[in-house]
């Protein structure tokens, strides 16, 4: 009688929310045509794109970023009165219109971090590496997808935030044709893209979302102030401008302050940070056990 429990035809699992598995083995149902089966970099990119787009949280986060950039920019712009005599960056109408970036960079950094740490947390990384054991294409594909999506979303958002902000400022506002304005608007989208990649790199290095997000936060928001306290004034002059956030400010302000790098050098230094962090990530990803 013991076999009755195991009898496939016995209706013992009626409440289970799954179908009855197919009886035949996969071999007898015809084998997959194996011609053309191979791992290629474009295919790994497609795989990473499927992973990114299939998580609703990614899209909600991006939507929140867009609304944050446009909304904060609009609020700041509405409350802003231009004062040409004030040399502070936040007295510039362009900076005010794009002030939502300050918050958006953290959110975008988190998107980059989670793109890899979530796989380490839930074990998906093992399926990923079993499919692509060389591993490096996975990091490359993730970087391209994250960078592509971030830039594609950020660029129109920056233009939108700028135009809405300037409309709200009214008299004394800036125009896209003014000197350096186009560089700032496009550069701001580029900055967010770089931050997403820094997040991906730090997430790969640290493997844990909490610590990687912590490092992003310190690196982008706290480091300039902290080092300002810790370093002697002479060293501040030399080093602070090379921090990622200050390198970004060099091309995200119309008139970079004297203690910042030139816009071009700022972009080069920020790109250096991205390449450096992703480079360390690539080496560790290859070496470590998954």
């Amino acid at each position: 009688m013991a076999t009755a429990i195991l009898d496939r035809t016995a209706p013992n699992d009626r409440t289970a929310p799954i179908d009855r598995p197919v009886e035949s083995s996969p071999g007898t149902s015809g084998r997959l045509d194996s011609t053309g089966l191979a791992v290629t970099f474009p295919r790994v990119i497609r795989s990473e794109w499927v992973k990114f787009r299939s998580l609703r949280s990614n899209w909600l986060t991006l939507l929140a970023t867009v609304l944050g950039i446009v909304g904060i920019g609009a609020l700041a712009s509405a409350a802003f009165t231009p004062d040409p005599g004030d040399a502070d960056a936040f007295s510039n109408p362009v900076t005010v219109g794009l002030s939502g970036n300050l918050l958006a960079q953290i959110v975008i950094g988190i998107v980059g971090v989670l793109a890899i740490t979530s796989e380490f947390t839930n074990g998906m990384i093992r399926s990923t590496f079993a499919s692509v054991p060389k591993r490096l294409p996975v990091l490359g594909a993730k970087a391209l997808v994250i960078a592509g999506v971030t830039f594609a979303v950020a660029l129109p958002t920056m233009f939108g935030a700028f135009l809405l902000g300037q409309a709200l400022i009214g008299e004394g506002n800036a125009s896209l044709t003014d000197d350096g304005v186009l560089r700032v608007v496009i550069g701001s989208a580029g900055y967010l893209t770089a931050v997403a990649l820094l997040g991906l790199g730090l997430g790969t290095i640290l493997r844990q979302a909490a610590s990687a997000i912590g490092v992003i936060f310190v690196m982008l928001l706290l480091a300039p102030q902290l080092l300002g306290f810790l370093l002697p004034a002479s060293a501040q002059e030399t080093f602070l401008r090379y921090l990622p956030s200050n390198a970004g400010d060099a091309f995200m302000t119309v008139d970079p302050a004297a203690n910042l790098l030139s816009p071009v050098m700022g972009a080069v230094v920020l790109a250096g940070w991205v390449v450096g962090v992703l480079g360390i990530a690539a080496v560790l990803l290859q070496r470590r056990d998954a």
Binding site: R43, R46, V50, K51, S54, L55, G123, M124, S127, V132
Partner: peptide, 29 residues
Amino acid sequence: VGALLEARAIHPGRSAYDHLSAMAATTGV
């Protein structure tokens, strides 16, 4: 080689179809 090394090694927010679809994409399945 096809392997099952641990149960539920999958993002909880992703559907079964998308999970397999992402794996399949790497190799042109």
